[in-house]
């Protein structure tokens, strides 16, 4: 997994790409460190570059959601496609996450 960060006054966009798997836990920790933002700030995961997420990857979204809730950030997942979108459907993530196309 790779990611880049794009900051604007009201929201931080994180563009993720590649595969999100068990091997990415350390990198994910640095990604979560970007959640150090004031309450009300938006955090957006843009997944349009992500081709595959395994169950450890799903766990990362849950950690991100939990972190955002604790810090009162608005967490959004955007642009999931193909297999990743399908995985979200199977796990019923649309009920637990703010997911947009």
């Amino acid at each position: 997994m790779e990611f880049t960060v794009k900051d604007s006054p009201n929201a931080t966009e994180l563009f993720l790409s590649g595969r999100m798997t068990f091997a990415d836990h350390d990198k994910f920790r640095t990604l979560i460190a970007t959640f150090d933002r004031p309450a009300g700030h938006g955090m957006v995961f843009d997944l349009s570059g992500v081709e595959f997420v395994d169950s450890s990857g799903l766990g990362m979204f849950i950690i991100a959601r939990d972190t955002a809730q604790k810090k009162n950030l608005e967490f959004t997942i955007r642009g999931a496609r193909d297999e990743v979108k399908r995985l979200f459907t199977i796990a019923k993530f649309n009920k637990m996450f703010n997911i947009v196309d």
Binding site: L58, I62, T89, I90, A91, K92, K95, M96
Partner: peptide
């Protein structure tokens, strides 16, 4: 169809 919330993360699912 095997869709359903994951076990554990979401109370009351």
């Amino acid at each position: 169809d095997s869709a359903g919330p994951l076990l554990g993360p979401f109370a009351g699912a």
